[in-house]
Amino acid sequence: MFNCASLFAGIGGLCMGMERAGFNTAWANEFNLDCVRVYKDNFPNSNIIAGDIRELSVEGNNLAPVDVLHGGFPCQSFSAAGNRLGFEDERGKLFHQIIRLIEEFGEKKPKMLLLENAPNLLIGDDGEWIETILTELQLCGYWVSKRNCLLVDANKHCGLPQRRERLFIVATSQDYFLDNPFDYNFDVVEKEDIQNFIELEEVKEDYYYLDKDNRFGSKLNEDLSKKPNYSLSQLRKTYVRPVEYGFCPTLTANMGAGGHNVPFLLDAKGLRKLTESECLKLQGFPETFKLPPASEMAKGKIYQMIGNSVSPRVSELLAKLIYNYLSENLDENRLAV
């Protein structure tokens, strides 16, 4: 079995995909204590280190060497929907902490890297952001170039009824491999029926419902009343955003920011937002994934961490390719211990 570790672990979307592919999670790091709580509930046997990555160190935290280091470093600075300040933003600068930790491992650095971010990272600042990242990784001794920057969509490539394209950078160590073959064009798969993800017949608690006479509710109700059951609608500021039937809008961390950022639907009782469990399923998490009760954690925080998460379906797709590559190309005598 190969070992992996996670930076910016969140609630474990990347870890879940890696473990489904056969990896063992040696350790993980996450700053947000609410995410740490959820992570521990769902990965009880993992060693998650709660705290700022800037205070994490190989020696100080006794971090075990691993075969694969993965992480979705903060995307707000690079996303088209964010401030686009790149490395001028403190969150953008956190990428350099990944480089620092790799260097601290020295000769025991990870054999492969899997890094996740927003697609806009590829083109932002006239391409300077991605060039900076690739150059830093190359200087650390990894085979990586733009052809190893893979765009994966949760809908097209994993069948989820949510269009959610993310960027994944795959790097291979020059100490172990002769090149980096990760330049895949993924097959397009059939979309799953959105009815499998939404609990339309089950009436929910009052928290989720919006009065259709509300000035926002009236707009949403007008839109949804013209559409078939299981249709979704979403407000963007003051207008209703068109949503194609059978699809869910991209779920984002803004769902936890209040207002009406969570998609809405019409059920037997009335106009309501998607529940946390429905959002989890639309992200590709299993129904067995555990969330804290409302008495212990605000719903807004839960929506936010779901919107921030990496889809386990997507991470599993990539993790299987990485696991197979390691199995076929790595001498067992040189595995991480």
Rank of each mutant, 00 (worst) to 15 (best):
I302D: 02
E190D: 15
L326I: 11
D34I: 09
R272N: 03
A268K: 14
P181E: 10
E199S: 10
E104P: 00
P249K: 03
N24G: 13
G92Y: 00
D34V: 11
L85V: 06
P242I: 12
I123K: 09
K109D: 06
L137M: 14
L265F: 10
K269V: 14
G259A: 11
D41M: 15
C35I: 06
D175A: 13
F31M: 05
G10S: 04
G127D: 10
R334I: 15
L33M: 12
L167N: 02
S277V: 11
S277D: 11
F87A: 03
K299L: 08
V240G: 07
N120S: 07
S79E: 11
W143C: 09
K40A: 07
E131T: 13
Y142Q: 01
S315M: 02
L265N: 08
E19F: 06
G17Q: 01
S46E: 10
N148L: 10
D125T: 12
I130Y: 04
L210D: 04
C279E: 03
G141P: 00
S145R: 02
L178A: 12
Q97H: 06
V36Y: 08
K146W: 06
E278C: 10
G86L: 03
R236T: 15
P312I: 03
T275Q: 02
K191V: 13
P263D: 04
E90I: 12
Y208L: 07
F289H: 03
Y239C: 07
Y209V: 08
S277W: 05
E103L: 10
E128A: 15
A294T: 08
I194W: 03
V68M: 07
V38H: 02
A257E: 09
I11R: 01
I99Y: 00
N180I: 08
M112P: 01
Q138C: 11
C35K: 02
L113C: 12
C15M: 10
S233A: 15
A154Q: 01
A80V: 11
A50L: 03
G17P: 00
N83Q: 05
G82D: 07
Q138K: 15
E199V: 12
R54E: 15
I306H: 01
L330F: 04
N229H: 09
I98T: 01
P181K: 00
G159T: 14
I11Y: 05
R20H: 12
N155S: 14
K273S: 10
